[in-house]
């Protein structure tokens, strides 16, 4: 039997990836890992607040001159911002679309219910929404100062951080978001490894352990700052 000659056109790689549930999950994994990498660096940078206003503010100013003299002032910073915004948007859009597909695929619930999967797994969706809202608030609070409590001072991040964490709601919002982050990273890091095909039977324990350690370090490291302000270690 002769096989028919295929005449359909091959679609572009971007189309193939975006149109496939497996491909879209890859977008989610890659954008998630980009954000994760950024958060590790961000968390370490934040800890400099424990070495006083001079060191912290100096670090913040340095961020604007990274890459000089090759890069003009703030070029590198803007480059990072563009990549991060792209990652957040790609992650959120694919999360939304994949979640809609998942919910549509299972319209009828079982009458007999039983508890399912791990806590971190079940909280990915609303945890992600919390993180999304937090990111917006966080930028408006400490980057643009739009919703900052007390006078926002451009170029004085140390004082701005102390202001934010001197309000009870600033502390609550931040700590809740960081706990959500820990849960999200715990399932997310391991999941991303599976999505990208990097997981295996022999590597599973190491991957899960890395996810736990990453989640714990990020959450603890970020929460240290508001706790430092609350306990007046930072003031």
């Amino acid at each position: 039997m002769a096989l028919a000659t295929r005449t359909d056109r091959r679609s572009s790689i971007a189309r193939t990836v975006w149109d496939s549930s497996v491909g879209k999950k890859t977008v989610m994994a890659v954008s998630g890992l980009i954000m994760l990498l950024y958060l590790v660096v961000h968390m370490i940078g934040n800890l400099k607040i424990f070495f006083g206003p001079d060191e912290f503010n100096h670090y913040a100013h340095w961020l604007r001159t990274v890459g000089a003299p090759f890069m003009h002032e703030e070029w590198t910073l803007w480059l990072i911002r563009v990549v991060l915004v792209a990652a957040v948007v790609a992650h959120a859009v694919s999360a939304y679309q994949l979640s809609r597909r998942d919910i549509r695929a299972r319209p009828a619930k079982y009458v007999h219910r039983r508890p399912r999967a791990s806590y971190a797994t079940r909280t990915m969706r609303w945890g992600g929404v919390i993180l999304g809202l937090f990111i917006v608030w966080h930028v408006l609070d400490l980057t643009t100062g739009t919703v900052h409590s007390g006078g926002f001072q451009e170029g004085h991040p140390y004082q701005n951080v102390v202001d934010t964490f001197s309000t009870w709601y600033g502390d609550v919002v931040y700590i809740v978001a960081m706990l959500a982050l820990g849960l999200h990273v715990r399932h997310g890091f391991w999941s991303a490894a599976q999505t990208l095909g990097a997981g295996s039977r022999t590597r599973d324990r190491a991957l899960r352990a890395t996810a736990d350690v990453l989640a714990l370090l990020l959450t603890a490291g970020f929460i240290a700052v508001p706790v430092g302000v609350m306990t007046k270690v930072v003031s």
Partner: peptide, 10 residues
């Protein structure tokens, strides 16, 4: 119309 994997493991 099947859903996608969220690695729940069920």
């Amino acid at each position: 119309g099947f859903g996608g994997c969220t690695l729940a493991g069920e």
